[in-house]
Design a protein around this nucleic acid. Structure first.
Length: 277
DNA sequence: AAGTGCGTCAACCGCCAACAC
DNA sequence: CGTGTTGGCGGTTGACGCACT
């Protein structure tokens, strides 16, 4: 049998907070700080348990909270970090200034999880569903092991406050089934936008592609790439072995290998070989 | 207009680790 | 070292609003 709830005491209120209660809590904390949460409610004149007060403050009343729709950049970050950290919402929240772990958790459960599932991606493993359990072949096991090592290295670097800067990848192609944030294994996020939908892709990509590189699908008949987003500076800095990334429309050897999830395509291999050093 | 189903999200519950004694 | 307390975390619930029939 578990411990009895902290609000079991007679007279303690539960449920939604009223504006009056919010005001009392806010005023008290602004004046005295929260101190001991357990001791706070009677001092603030609230018929709540300390836990409820703490939750209300951290998830709603804190002045440094950003509310409202998640930007594409934020969505991308959540997906990336979830692939890396799993359901460690507070750790994920620490990378998203002004967002609470509760809000991120809700957003993941109600939006992102469903979206990944719809895209045929297992939201827990971040792998295509058909590959979620792996084939059991030595090659797959080796890959998983390699990726695990890579993630470990990343986590260690993160702990040292030296987060490795892995670029995100944008792919514009005519036959894209996806018009949203995707991912490339656990290495980076990938924005796939249908090339013919010029009306929104520029703004959409700008949101996603901050500090990102962009790869144009050479198979695209439209070949639309916004100049402002065209080809990253780091390609000029030496990353020149992209799989046809900068090639003309008919230079499509690598692009033919592109797949919706990029798990096994040239893009994925390229990222692995380039960044797993 | 009423009923139903579904999505969203604030809030709660219970577990756990850290800390004080 | 054992025990009690506290705060933090992730999982879950349920009230609410909206869309649809």
């Amino acid at each position: 049998m578990g411990r009895s709830p902290c609000c079991e005491k007679v007279g303690l209120k539960k449920g939604p907070w009223t504006p009056e209660e919010d005001q009392k809590l806010l005023a008290y904390i602004q004046q005295h700080g929260h101190g001991s949460w357990r001791a706070l409610p009677p001092k603030a004149g609230l018929q709540r348990c300390g836990k409820s007060c703490r939750l209300r403050w951290t998830n709603y009343l804190r002045p440094d909270i950003k509310r409202g729709e998640f930007s594409l950049q934020e969505q991308q970050t959540i997906i990336q970090l979830h692939a890396l950290l799993g359901n460690r919402w507070s750790a994920i929240a620490s990378h998203l200034p002004k967002r609470t772990d509760n809000e991120i958790k809700n957003y993941w459960n109600t939006h992102l999880k469903k979206r990944l599932t719809k895209m045929g991606i297992d939201p827990m493993t971040h792998k295509p569903k058909s590959h979620a359990l792996g084939s059991g072949e030595p090659k797959d096991i080796a890959n998983l092991s390699h990726m695990a090592q890579w993630e470990t290295a990343r986590l260690e670097a993160e702990a040292d406050n030296m987060l490795i800067n892995i670029p995100n990848v944008g792919l514009i192609c005519d036959n894209a089934l996806l018009t949203d944030v995707n991912y490339v294994g656990n290495l980076g996020a990938c924005a796939i936008v249908k090339a013919s939908d010029h009306s929104y892709q520029d703004e959409q990509l700008k949101g996603i592609m901050e500090n990102s590189m962009q790869i144009e699908d050479p198979n695209s008949s439209t070949n639309y790439v916004s100049d402002s987003l065209r080809f990253p500076s780091f390609v000029e800095d030496g990353y020149t072995d992209l799989p046809n990334a900068t090639g003309p429309a008919d230079d499509n050897v690598g692009a033919k290998e592109m797949c919706p999830t990029h798990e096994s395509c040239g893009l994925f291999s390229w990222m692995k070989s380039t960044f797993q050093q």
